[in-house]
Amino acid sequence: MEVLFRLKKSPLAMVGLLVVILLVVVALFANVLAPYSYSKQHLTHMFEGPSKNFLLGTDEFGRDILSRLIYGARISLMVGFIAVSIALLAGGVLGAISGYYGGWIDNAIMRVMDVLLSIPQTLLAIAIAASLGPGLFNLMIAVGVSSMPQYARIVRSSVLSIRGMEFIEAAHAVGSSDMRIIFKHILPNSMAPIIVQATLGVAFAILNAAGLSFIGLGIQPPYPEWGAMLSGGRQYIRDYPHLTLYPGLAIMITILALNFLGDGLRDALDPKLKR
């Protein structure tokens, strides 16, 4: 509650939050909000610009771009949030174990993470997606696994900084077990950097997924993923720029909103600014 209160002080963050909430609502109620089905082809209305019937125009098969964007929000947001959840869960557990126990376990885990970090993230995602094959679920795994090392590092460093504090020693002294200390005492105290990174990470995951779809490794047609829509429209960019413009804008606005929100959360959760 306190965080929300402080978040309110930053107008940009509030804009970001509103846009994100709006997008989530749009994604949830896509079938109600979209005027047409995402795959319905209006073959007599191909490449049409914005009009009363097709608010954002139609694409090369006469499909309504607005409807496809609305359904696309579903997939893009899902990929973003689930990929980050995968990354956060896997990276978080590894990072927490690494930071808490230290020693050779720490070394083993973090060296593997370092190897993963040494590969450019997009390239790693491409490699994973290519080896798993295209598809929604594989896309999420590819994007998630490729960003896992960052979360492992962040969680590890926050666990390390909290682990040495006296109240952790005090928790040992009242007989708490290791798992209890990690989950009840350490993680709640290290949430701030993790939340911030995850918010920014959703934006990055959406971008990454769009990139993978763009090169054909992600969502397959006719499913409307924003990156795939960009990719499909690029052949016609000279004559019909609206095919790429609107998905591009959708990606941009989403990323921007998530970044505003992430920055705002970072400030709101910064204990130094408390009181």
Binding site: E166, F167, E169, P188
Partner: peptide
């Protein structure tokens, strides 16, 4: 413990 400032969990 010695220092009550740090021996309590700040978020509990």
């Amino acid at each position: 413990f010695q220092d009550p400032m740090t021996s309590l969990n700040p978020v509990m």
